[in-house]
Simulated scan of single mutants.
Amino acid sequence: MANPFVNKKKVRGWKRRIREVDMWKNNYLHLDIEELNRTQRKYLKIWLDPWNRLVKRTPPVWFSRIILQALLDVYNAWYKKLKATGEPFYLKIWLYSPNFVHSQVVCAVGDALNYYDDTFDKGTVRKEFPTKFSNLPNIESLEWELCLDSITYWDSELKENIAEGYETISSYNNIVQRSYASGQMKLSYGNDTYYKIKVGDVWLGSLNATK
């Protein structure tokens, strides 16, 4: 299957795109604590054209490093503001691989402090942190935890898609066989079976809040 995050169409105007990264970063360096206390959660995604269009594109490695450095700068600025409050907080960089354009800085406080605790399943295979990012300034000061980037499919939706002609029995069986985890969950409409398919890795990076 072709990787939907790869697009070979030539990208032009790199100097302008580098400036856009700086403007994007500068717009989010300041964390409004009062607003955060009202909303309980805040995140910064890679809202940069052409990478975040409907059909996602993977930036070249050198440009991904520039974007990740911007996320690190925002993370450090938010960390200082949150640390100064003296209150507990959740603050992590979610670094996706190979789906880099999904990477983001994520924050939660108050009643939402544990909102993201079960977002990802833990990685089961030992891997080294991606070497293409390993020498970015200050990146080693963060502790990085490997988790799974996955898609969850629901049995009822898959069977409904088969009935409506959007899914085949063969593709349904393929999802069931490829799933690394499955089980039943009680939802608002009743019990349903889920299947999780791994599509990549996600590294969760954070500073030790006690430092």
Score class of each variant (00 low, 15 high):
M23I: 15
I46S: 01
S171V: 09
K132A: 10
D118G: 04
R53H: 13
Y172Q: 07
V74S: 07
Y96Q: 01
W144P: 02
Y189I: 09
K8H: 13
S141C: 08
L204H: 06
S64D: 04
R16K: 15
N26D: 15
N26Y: 02
P59V: 03
S188L: 09
D149C: 06
G165C: 05
R38A: 12
V106R: 03
I162K: 05
Y180E: 05
I18N: 10
K9E: 15
I46K: 00
N76E: 14
E143I: 10
Q177C: 04
D73N: 14
V125Y: 08
Y96A: 05
L136Q: 00
D73P: 07
G123D: 13
F89P: 01
V61S: 11
L68T: 08
K81N: 06
Y116K: 02
D149V: 04
E140A: 14
S103N: 01
V176C: 06
S97E: 10
N26T: 03
G86Q: 00
V21S: 04
V109I: 13
R16P: 00
W154R: 07
S97V: 01
T58C: 07
P130F: 08
A112C: 05
V106L: 05
I66S: 07
N52K: 01
A108V: 01
A209T: 12
V11Y: 14
S150G: 04
L148N: 08
K45S: 15
M23W: 11
Y195Q: 04
Y195M: 07
S134V: 08
R17H: 15
F63K: 02
E164S: 12
Y90D: 02
K15S: 15
R53G: 15
E34C: 08
K186L: 11
N191T: 14
W144K: 03
T119H: 10
L146I: 06
T119Q: 14
N52E: 01
I66Y: 08
T168R: 06
W47S: 15
D22G: 11
R12M: 14
V105R: 00
